[in-house]
């Protein structure tokens, strides 16, 4: 597929003798929700790290919107339209929810080397931030410090931050991790609404959410992609059933 937005070509990464990314080739097309599933220790978080730029692969290439970004640092990739949420919530604890999102809006809006005008009174930033907060159900919580929000609220805040960056590709690293039943249903509905507007690479353990959301699913086992296909194909794949779905799900 020539029009892939993100393309991983034979990516390799080892920690000592342990091969955590093993010849991974994978693509994400514009507008699709591509889920990445696999048992614990399959190397999903490392792979997300390689895509986002925290982890440098030993070999292989990462192409984003046709450009080789394999050697670019995190911030340069983010600027090209790659946003992520973190598996372990990574919001700014001393900032309010609104300030967290406003900072993302500011990063999107261009240079942050502006030294004099108070950012707190920048209505353009605040407006966009408030809108994004409303979109994830946090409209009433903008003035609360992030460290005083509940776990589920912080997960939603992560999503609002990523969305306000208006990325071409959204990397979601277990957005449902640690959330309750109701919250994950709400998050699923939120992601449902995003369908088609932007590409999403979703790493998730919640199979109900994955099969409800994904256009395509790739299965990672011991650092290797063992299958890629539509939810129906994945469900029917004997290799996947044996390697993954059979175990414990």
């Amino acid at each position: 597929m020539a029009e892939a937005l993100l393309r991983l070509e034979r990516l390799e990464k080892s920690y000592g003798a342990l091969r955590v990314t093993d010849a991974v080739t994978l693509d994400v097309r514009p507008g699709e929700i591509h889920a990445l599933i696999g048992p614990n220790g399959a190397g999903k978080t490392t792979l997300i790290g390689e895509i986002a730029g925290q982890v440098r692969p030993d070999a292989g290439r990462i192409l984003f919107a046709g450009e080789d970004v394999t050697r670019l640092p995190v911030h340069a990739r983010a600027r090209r339209g790659l946003a992520r949420s973190f598996q372990i919530t990574n919001v700014l604890p001393d900032f309010t929810a609104l300030e967290n999102v406003a900072l993302a809006a500011q990063a999107r809006a261009g240079s942050s080397f502006r030294f004099f005008r108070p950012a707190a009174r920048d209505e353009a930033l605040n407006g966009r931030a408030a809108e994004a907060l409303a979109g994830v159900g946090l409209a009433a919580r903008g003035g609360i410090r992030a460290d005083a929000l509940s776990h589920g609220e912080r997960r939603a805040l992560e999503l609002a931050i990523a969305l306000v960056q208006e990325p071409k590709l959204l990397l979601l690293d277990e957005p449902m991790a640690g959330t309750g039943r109701e919250e994950s249903t709400a998050l699923t509905r939120m992601l449902q609404r995003l369908r088609g507007s932007r590409a999403i690479l979703l790493v998730e353990h919640d199979m109900e959410a994955v099969f409800a959301l994904a256009d395509r699913i790739s299965v990672l086992v011991y650092g290797r992609v063992v299958a890629t296909g539509s939810p129906a194909e994945i469900r029917a794949d004997p290799v996947v059933r044996e390697a993954y779905l059979g175990e414990g799900e």
Binding site: G53, V74, A78, L92, L103, Q106, A107, R108, R117
Partner: peptide, 27 residues
């Protein structure tokens, strides 16, 4: 004025989580 500005916000955010700031596209 500097700490209240856009620049100041990034500086304070970098104290709290450099990883988050980089993920926003800011070095």
């Amino acid at each position: 004025a500097i700490v209240a500005s856009r620049f100041g916000r990034v500086l304070q955010a970098a104290r709290q989580s450099p990883g988050r700031v980089a993920a926003l596209g800011l070095d």
